[in-house]
Nucleic acid binder design. Structure first.
Lengths: 340, 340
DNA sequence: CGCTTGATTTGAAGCGCTTCAAATCGTACT
DNA sequence: AGTACGATTTGAAGCGCTTCAAATCAAGCG
């Protein structure tokens, strides 16, 4: 009766019936497997097109041993993740894999997002800056290949692709110190291991420049709101530093916001630096000095790592550490003489 | 041998064996279906937890009639879409549906992204600002419930949730005209129907204010790059308007970029307005006057529309048009006296 | 006690597609 | 003509889970 909707999805069997062959043959043609003759291929393909046949992915996944699916955990709303996702798609497709996205949102925590991915039978997982403890990731890594992007993880069975964060922040401090800054504050990124690395890089670099006494870490997080809070705290306590290094671009944006609203000139009165070189930072109205993580290369490495485990049977854990690159834009400059 | 990886995923059958019952019973317990006794439920649940059982989603989807999956097509990188996705997740979960994301990227066009969703057996699709022609969407709507967000579509079988775009742009022009602007230019959003609506709204509003002669539409798109290009064109030809209305926030950001770099004071010399009230526009360093689309309500309506078709059997197409709301921030002000 | 009832549990048939051993077909060769 | 052999095609067994009619059970009643 219901001719309007559905009217039964076209199945493999229907195509088979159309050309008078067995479903087996049709399946082989469609999956481009060896066997069927050229003539058969042609007829089947024609019939499939004619009927508008679309294989049912779930059935296919269930029957096939391999799913060729890579699950990606991301934070929707993060500009940097968005870039990574684009590049991951590209890298995965180049190697014959498909990508399934799962987003962490306000009401959907990391655990759930990851479970969804596993439930969909992803063969490997690429996690963008996960916050789960190493033990949990290791546990996950025992089930399937897991590649963590961005964060250091000391769990074997888990591959890691990241940039040398401590070094990145170090470059930032070098840059600022080189401009003559001494009072360089750092807005922290919260509890995660990425934050720990960057914080450590900051402290080390400050010491290296004999600026240890000026080191000042302000509590923060990786959101605009946290950056704004930190900036307000800074403003409140007087004795403003001459430069603020933020955990990431989003956070730096929050800092900039508050300074802008408060009429604090950047970089005249104070310099601000972010981290990620996200599209946000590149906007001329923001024009933030930051550190580039090279999303494309990280994506490439991540997919390569997953595929090597899947297809080449590699089993030893691997860690790829890329060199970060300072990108100097408009939010940094020499300190105002009489301030520090 | 391979005890390390996999060691066979735990199946429903394993749980059943563990408690000495049939897979059927276990299945019912796990899906919370009526039948099994309280005692049984408890035992099964305990065993499942103990074995760390996770149902195989693909198998489950295949066997079940319903998948309870809503596919969402989005543009990764669009701040507004990111917001919508968050809200869609929330709305869907509230009604017992799960969300699958599919992103349009540089190398993955809309068609492919949609196909992926259908292949995963989504029961309904929510498309965020799709560019496909109406006929194609109608065709899709014949297969399954489709809700288009943001854009007007005259295909029945397809529900639409959008804001009155023409009206939104109208409010912008009203605002600017009220401030005294006369030379108000508009940066277009390309070929899509959303762009057509807004462009039309602009033209109508200009005429309404007897400013038809000042109407000026500059070719554009929905990216920062396009906005930048348009702004450069404007700068190049001299006779700058006193206000520029951009297709959306991303585009407006590009416009702002160029003006900032060129040292054109905003809003002193020229006012700029965007559209979407995306998180970007809210950043104090951007602080863009724009039009709010109320992502949350759109998400709510979209999910409601899909669920009504799915669960309540509604079949008549529906269009929900929400009222847009002008959000005045810092990029608009009265025109400089001697300019227009 | 035998029998009815309602509560539980289970066997068996798929969901739509893949796989692979076995069957079929043509053809080349002796 | 008879046999062997490579090229094609197909039957049948699942993949792991759900469903539902039929079976089983325990309790309740006359």
């Amino acid at each position: 009766m219901d001719m309007s909707r559905g009217s039964r999805r076209v199945r493999l069997e229907d195509v088979a019936a159309r050309v008078g062959m067995s479903p087996a043959s049709v399946s082989m043609v469609l999956s481009n497997a060896p066997g069927p003759s050229a003539a058969t291929r042609e007829r089947v393909l024609a019939a499939a097109a004619e009927l508008g046949y679309r294989p049912d992915r779930t059935a296919s996944l269930l029957a096939r041993r391999r799913t060729h699916l890579v699950g990606v955990l991301m934070e929707v709303g993060s500009a940097f993740h968005a870039e990574l996702v684009e590049d991951l798609h590209e890298a995965a497709e180049g190697r014959g894999y498909d990508v399934v996205l799962s987003a962490v949102t306000r009401t959907r925590d990391e655990r759930r997002a990851i479970e969804t991915l596993v439930d969909f039978r992803c063969e490997a997982l690429v996690l963008l800056g996960p916050v789960a403890p190493a033990a949990q990731l290791a546990q996950l890594g025992r089930q399937l290949p897991v590649v963590v992007i961005g964060r250091r993880v000391s769990a074997d069975g888990v591959d890691v692709v990241r940039t040398a964060d401590a070094d990145g922040v170090g470059q930032v401090v070098d840059h600022l110190a080189g401009l003559g800054h001494r009072a360089i504050a750092y807005v922290d990124g919260g509890r995660g291991p990425i934050a720990a690395d960057r914080r450590h890089g900051y402290r080390t670099a400050m010491r290296r420049h004999r600026l240890g006494d000026h080191a000042q870490v302000i509590a923060g997080d990786h959101t605009e709101a946290a950056g704004a809070r930190a900036a307000r705290a800074l403003l409140g306590e007087g004795g403003l530093p001459t430069a603020v290094v933020a955990f990431n671009d989003h956070c730096a944006l929050g800092v900039l916001d508050v300074f802008n609203r408060a009429g604090v000139d950047v970089p005249g009165k104070i310099s601000v630096v972010g981290y990620d070189d996200s599209t946000l930072s590149r906007l001329a109205s923001v024009n933030l000095t930051t550190v580039s993580q090279d999303a494309r290369r990280q994506a490439e490495h991540a997919v390569a790592a997953a595929v090597e485990r899947l297809d080449d049977g590699r089993s030893a854990a691997r860690e790829v550490v890329l060199a970060p690159r300072l990108v100097v834009r408009g939010t940094t400059g020499p300190p105002t003489p009489g301030t520090a």
